[in-house]
Write a protein that binds this DNA or RNA. Sequence first.
DNA 1: CAAGGAAATATTGGATACGATCCTGCGACA
DNA 2: TGTCGCAGGATCGTATCCAATATTTCCTTG
Lengths: 226, 226
Amino acid sequence: MPTPPKPLLQRQTVTAMVAEYIAAKIIGGDYPGGHQIRQEAIAAELGVSRIPVREALLQLEAEGLVVIRTHRGAVVSDLSADDAIDLFDARLLLEPFLVKKAIARLSNQDIANAERALQDYEAAIARGDPKELSRLNWAFHTALLEPSMRPRSMAVLQTLYSSADRYLRLQIEPLKAQTKALQEHRDIFEAYRRRDAVETSRLLKKHVADAADEIVSQLKRGEAAS
Amino acid sequence: MPTPPKPLLQRQTVTAMVAEYIAAKIIGGDYPGGHQIRQEAIAAELGVSRIPVREALLQLEAEGLVVIRTHRGAVVSDLSADDAIDLFDARLLLEPFLVKKAIARLSNQDIANAERALQDYEAAIARGDPKELSRLNWAFHTALLEPSMRPRSMAVLQTLYSSADRYLRLQIEPLKAQTKALQEHRDIFEAYRRRDAVETSRLLKKHVADAADEIVSQLKRGEAAS
DNA sequence: CAAGGAAATATTGGATACGATCCTGCGACA
DNA sequence: TGTCGCAGGATCGTATCCAATATTTCCTTG
């Protein structure tokens, strides 16, 4: 059996892997806001050259996770209450709109997909790995919005979300927030399954707005203290 | 006078110049949708290496102008009525919202900036260089929205606009559209100067929606014909 | 003559090497 | 004493070169 050496079907490029690696560090908080990312350091750490590191940083800049200045390198973008407001306001416009569009053309398969995403999210709460939970949380949102068939808006939301994720990790009581989010997800899905566009949109908006409010007020306390 | 050879203070990187070059080709229609962009061809054309070309393409991918597939290179993204709807709907959500936020914190200086942008746009209509007009059109929109102090939303809009621009170039009667747009710009600016957030938002929304309608209906005719 | 497959070619992805720019710290001069 | 200018090192931007993958061509075979 001369099977190919590796698990195969792992068609990933080095650039993509580096981008994931750095993004995880930023979202996880290992690289805080303001942290200088040295291309050579990352390259040595991962045993690759600087080229894929540079290209990964370009992608992360497009997502807003880092800021690149010519000849001065990449810096992890700062978190602030203003930025969080900016970001969540954009989500608050796009997500309720897209979910309405999605429901307008919803198939049973789409509902099944959303239900599965919800179940995966529920199952992961017990285990409580924050990285996995974040991924599944977003997967649920994506499952709701995907049927809208708006790839461009979805791409925008994807970039917004990776930054929003950084803020979500700051929550003081993540466990409490998670159980609250779980109940809200269930309510949203119920309305979604009924194809009640208005109610789903309303609940989704509230779901995002509540999270935004908590994060912003918490950030403002932090900024006032400093 | 041993003045330096170039205008100097032109601190641009080669990557940025290449990105501008390719973007202009795409927006101008020289590279139509589906066109394969060969890195080496661009590199030879501009007398640079392939590295800056690759990095430019990454940036253009983030803007949605091209699609990159691993080991298969970059292809100019296709235009379609669905994509235009996707894109303009997102603008229709963000721009009216941002202009309200801008008016809420508007300074006299901001109004003066918008007025200047409007005048520049008016002045350019006479000359009629499409590339310049497009730039000044967007500069006016930017001047209106900039005071909102929402850099992240502005960045999203910036990427949306560069694609929207491709569609705007398709208009059958650009001259007619331009004069219509000019009158609408004047009306918008009048409401803006009065700090009438509701009216400005309404007019801006209509301004974008009208352009979108014309483009989408035109595209649908084209798609039905094919 | 059409279909399948292997070698040849083209194109992209990544590594190494070099030149340009920026930052830091030391010393000279007002 | 404070400010300016100038090395020196560190870091980034780009060119050149090598490896991996995709596409094409052409031959074989049913």
